[in-house]
């Protein structure tokens, strides 16, 4: 248990620092790379929680596809590869206050409700369980998501293509 907690702590620290980098760095490409760190950390957290399949999907879809897509976006919008001055809003105090306030509210609520809730041990779910569930109980939402993806695909092509 201790090892897991230590592992969690290290990972959480890295993730928070990387997340802060994502929103603070002046280099767009660096931001995308820091995002990879955060996403990888999230995948690690999934593994820690025993959700193998979600962890692997996270790596495949997010790091493999979404980040690449974002980098394409960076490239196509002709961002400079070095530092860029014009990335942030002039007023950043208000966002910080709002975020901090929200964090305060959430922290209070979470600690107040789940102070001593232990997670059950040995609750690893494998891909078979997940697929059984998806293709039996959640088949309709699954189909809906596939239609949604198709719609998004077509929509993206229609929106982005040149006349």
């Amino acid at each position: 248990m201790v090892a897991q907690n230590v592992f969690f702590g290290i990972m959480a620290l890295i993730m928070i620092c990387a997340a802060l980098k994502v929103v603070r760095t002046k280099n767009v490409v660096h931001a995308a790379l820091w995002l990879v760190v955060v996403l990888g950390g999230v995948a690690g957290q999934f593994l820690l929680l025993g959700a193998e399949f979600v962890g692997v999907t996270q790596v495949l879809v997010y790091i493999g596809a979404v980040v690449v897509l974002l980098l394409f976006g960076v490239m196509l919008t002709k961002a400079s590869l070095g530092e860029e001055a014009d990335l942030n809003m002039p007023n950043r105090t208000l966002p910080a206050i709002i975020a901090a306030l929200m964090f305060g509210v959430m922290t209070y609520a979470l600690i107040d409700t789940f102070r001593d809730t232990e997670l059950p041990r040995e609750s690893v779910t494998n891909a078979a369980t997940v697929s059984d569930s998806i293709f039996a109980d959640y088949i309709v939402p699954f189909e809906a998501v596939s239609v949604l993806l198709l719609a998004a695909l077509i929509g993206a092509v229609v929106v982005a293509r040149k006349e």
Binding site: M1, Q4, N5, F8, A12, M15, I16, A19, L20, V22, V23, V28, A31, V38, V42, Q45, L48, L49, L70, G73, V74, T77, A79, E84, D86, L87, N88, M89, R92, L94, P95, A96, I98, A99, A100, M102, F103, M106, T107, L110, I111, F114, R115, D116, T117, E118, L119
Partner: peptide, 30 residues
């Protein structure tokens, strides 16, 4: 492991994300 440690991590990430949405001007960064 406690449940709350994951929830707190998630809330930290969430709030950092919100800060990013509000503070960034560049569409890709948002």
């Amino acid at each position: 492991m406690l449940l709350v440690q994951f929830l707190l991590l998630s809330s930290v990430l969430f709030c950092i994300g919100i800060y990013g949405v509000l503070a960034r001007k560049n569409g890709v960064m948002v």
